[in-house]
Design a protein around this nucleic acid. Structure first.
Length: 584
RNA sequence: UGGGGCGUCGUCAAGCGGUAAGACACCAGCCUUUGGAGCUGGCAUUCCCAGGUUCGAAUCCUGGCGCCCCAGCCA
């Protein structure tokens, strides 16, 4: 590296950073350009401080991960800090258990906010004082209108609103009423505190937005201390301001809330964070709204928030996704302001890329077909050496048992093979991975059904470990397990939850729910070493894909595996193309 | 007939007046004891459209068109 300046100096220079090998935070984007510019102008004394502000009302999904990686990744890359703040301003929807799951998911992604864990509810008292200040300044008033009346007064997108008859109460009356709202004198919904801005604004958010509502509800942290709660819009900007956030990154729909945040901050005369909006993540063949995800859970279409088909972080984790693959994915997706839908194939690609380097290879037969090797001595068992990962020699080797009777994959045998099928067929020879060449001599069928139930083969003792002494080649290599040594297992194959790329296009997103999104195969045979595989571990089942030990259902001697992602399947493409040709 | 955004390959996405990066997907080939991985090559004469400015425009100007968001006492 030509760059040998001290680390601290590097971290302050945008230009150098792009050349640095250590820069892992992804390509430049419009947000980083803004920050580079701010740094150049010595804005915020060169500080970069971001935050991720989730509402604890549900589980995090990969769309949230985009916001997390963006906010936290930028802070890391610029040598700044990042906070975690729960936006808990609505006690009716929020629960402490969601706080825990959110913390767990973000930690799992690999981030550490140190001691900077905050809650909007930490600021309730300050927010209250600020509200009093606005009242005293004649910038806020207590409104007795009902929710319906407020809506009517708001006007429409094209028509200006009407001012509330309570808009011009005296400061003293407002102070008195607000105080009594706080002390619990009024029932829910009876009165609100509103900012006095402009009922004719083209921006609906500026038409005297509600700052406080009366809510006699217990809050997960403040209990029953408060019976008025701040609206998100009143709490959010000030919370960022209090924490000294320099760049408040949020999604596009808050663009026209920004003038309101700025208005509040201006009236209060406090520090202004800079809000920058970006487009949220959408993925093909899934849905990303909390409402829809909740419906899937509650209506029983999935096994829970952590169902491996869900785009939730807990679901992806259970399925076998690594934090690294998710972060890589998000880096590659980039950040911009245009609405987009990312092909889920990119996510899968990132997982394969990661697991290819790290997952131990292992043999598992999902749909076993018995093979008897007639010329192999009965009762003989030999140990063969198998490499654990051809991509990483340091992962070593293991011993596997070979014997006269084995299982191979049903789909690896074809009685009438097509030209391009180069696996096992009558009279054909293939290689057994790590073992010998075998040749199919006889096909045994069920008398009644005609199904192939067993293959009789011979092996060539001179092909041990997979090479023929006479140099003859074989095109196919099959995985297998020794029937006497293999252990039964359950394997769950997942396909996309929705058949349609964009399920939201339907009137009801449930219409394109994929009936085949989960296939349970219960009679699989796997290498004995996997019988006690640890929860969450990922393996590559040779020629199949990457499989993780299910954390919910897997038990020692009764293992359950989730297919995280299949291997790229060139053969499937060839077959598909062949079928298409024949169909013509 | 309101306000705020956005329009570059099938999908994301660089590009910031000097003659269209990269990734995924797809296609072709090489290689292979995983039809995996890897490697090589192909894949936008054109940037929503139309005018204009300029020696030169995806980038600047004007006018259209299209898409998204906003009328919670949700966030």
């Amino acid at each position: 590296m030509s760059n040998n300046r001290p680390e601290s100096e590097k971290s302050q220079s945008g230009g150098e950073r792009r050349e640095g090998a250590e820069r892992t935070g992804g390509a430049s984007n419009f947000i980083r350009e803004i920050i580079d510019e701010d740094l150049k102008n010595k804005k915020n004394d060169g500080r970069v401080h971001t935050r991720f502000p989730p509402e604890p009302n549900g589980y995090l999904h990969i769309g949230h991960a985009k916001a997390i990686c963006l906010n936290y990744g930028i802070a890391e890359d610029y040598g700044g800090r990042y906070n975690l703040r729960f936006d808990d301003t609505n006690p009716i929807k929020e629960e402490a258990e969601f706080v825990q799951s959110i913390i767990e998911d973000i930690k799992w992604l690999g981030y550490d906010w140190e001691d900077r864990l905050y809650y909007a509810s930490d600021y309730f008292e300050q927010l209250y004082q600020w509200a009093v200040k606005l009242i005293k300044d004649g910038k806020a008033y207590v409104d007795d209108l009902s929710a319906d009346q407020i809506r009517e007064h708001r006007g429409t997108l094209t028509k200006p609103g009407k001012e509330s008859p309570f808009r011009n109460r005296s400061v003293d009356e407002n102070l008195d009423l607000f105080e009594r709202m706080k002390s619990g004198e009024f029932p829910d919904g009876s009165r609100v505190l509103r900012a006095k801005i402009d009922m004719a604004s083209g921006n609906l958010n500026m038409r005297d937005p509600v700052m406080y509502r009366v809510l006699h509800a217990a809050h997960h942290r403040t209990g029953t201390e408060w019976c008025i709660y701040p609206m998100y819009d009143w709490a959010h900007g000030q919370s960022d301001s209090i924490e000294g956030i320099t760049h408040s990154l949020c999604s596009l729909e808050f663009e026209d809330h920004r003038p309101l945040y700025d208005w509040y901050l201006d009236q209060l005369g406090v520090y202004h964070p800079q809000q920058i909006e970006f487009a949220r993540l959408n993925l093909t063949n899934t849905v990303m709204s909390k409402r829809k995800l909740r419906a899937l859970v509650e209506e029983g279409h999935v096994d829970g928030w952590d169902d491996p088909r869900m785009p939730t972080l807990s679901g992806l984790r259970r399925r076998g996704y690594s934090p690294k693959s998710i972060r890589t994915f998000l880096d590659r997706v980039g950040v911009a302001k245009r609405d987009s839908v990312v092909d889920i194939a990119l996510l899968e690609h990132c997982l394969r890329e990661d697991l290819n380097k790290t997952a131990p290879r292992v043999m598992a037969v999902l749909r076993p077909l018995k093979v008897v090797i007639e010329n192999y001595p009965e009762g003989q068992v030999e140990q063969l050496e198998a490499i654990n990962n051809p991509e990483d020699a340091s992962m070593g080797t293991r011993q596997i048992s070979f014997s006269r009777e084995i299982y191979i994959e049903r789909e690896d045998f074809r009685e009438e093979p097509s030209k391009k099928f180069f696996r096992l067929a009558p009279g054909r020879e293939v290689r057994l991975k790590h073992a010998y060449f075998i040749k199919c001599e006889k096909v045994i069928k069920d008398d009644k059904t005609g199904d192939v139930i067993e293959l009789r083969c011979t092996y060539d003792p001179g092909t041990k470990s997979g090479e023929a002494q006479d140099g003859r080649r074989v095109k196919g290599t099959l995985h297998w397990v020794s029937s006497a040594h293999a252990v039964p297992a359950e394997v769950r194959i997942y396909n996309s939850l929705f058949t349609r790329e964009d399920p939201e296009e339907d009137e009801d997103f449930r219409q394109s729910l994929n009936p085949d999104s989960l296939e349970i195969i219960s009679d699989c045979m796997i290498e004995p070493g996997l019988a006690t595989a640890e929860h969450g571990t990922c393996y590559q089942f040779l020629r199949h894909g990457y499989f993780s030990v299910d954390t919910k259902h897997s038990k020692p001697q009764k293992p359950v595996f989730n297919r995280a992602v299949s291997l790229r399947d060139t053969w499937a493409k060839i077959e598909k193309a062949e079928r298409k040709k024949v169909g013509q």
